[in-house]
Amino acid sequence: MLTLNIKEELNKTEEKTKIKVKDLNFYYGPKQTLKNISMDIYEKKVTAIIGPSGCGKSTFIRLFNRMDEFVLESKSEGEIIIDGKNILEKDTDLIDLRRRVGMVFQKPNPFPKTIMENIAYGLKVNGWKDNFQIETRVIDSLKKSALWEEVKYRLKENAYGLSGGQQQRLCIARCIAVRPEIILFDEPCASLDPISTAKIEELIMDLKKDYTIVIVTHNMQQAARISDYTAFFLMGEMIEYGLTKNIFENPKDKRTEDYITGRFG
């Protein structure tokens, strides 16, 4: 009944669905980690996933670019439809999927290579050869991720010389260099100081113009500040999903309210 209400509310907003999740179940071995999740994620919006540790947020968004491929003995049921195609099906072209669905991880993970090589990596994976084209795209990506001014004279330096926040923006630049359609962020600010965090948040708001964004975060204020939609997860279930404003100001479920007000066990 609750889900019906949510659906009604969402339909009113007339967003374009980018990712459609239908009756999704996920298992690590015998252990069920995601239970019967259905939700629509909308194009060029920021969708935040919140919930306590271990509730399956990472597991959930990692299915969108099929990073579960590397987990032994895992199993998924249901559908995740991106642009009309169920990407959980066996015949999915994972290389192409990962070009369309980029990911930024919790800990900045630049390659121990130069700044230039870091951003060019995804392009080269996709068979780019022309150095001029690669360089143009690298510079463009650095500008779009608000890093250009800080690194324009050190493109040939090792990325490990950058600060944590710069490294994370480099990872974002690396991700958008291949022009994905969707970007997944798994707690991108977890290891960063407040100033770096603010910069990343600003960047995400800016990226929303061109990309569909899904972000996992433990920071309630962050979710409230940057997201349009919020989904609350608890022990593998999606408890509530809706406009961020509604979730934070007027949660329908007691458990959601407890969680966002910090009264959670």
Binding site: K107, N109, N126
Partner: peptide
């Protein structure tokens, strides 16, 4: 670190690449 392999594969690289 595994995170580097993860970064590479999330960019669409094959295991061999």
């Amino acid at each position: 670190p595994y995170s580097l392999r993860e970064a590479s594969m999330a960019l669409g690289a094959t295991k061999l690449y």
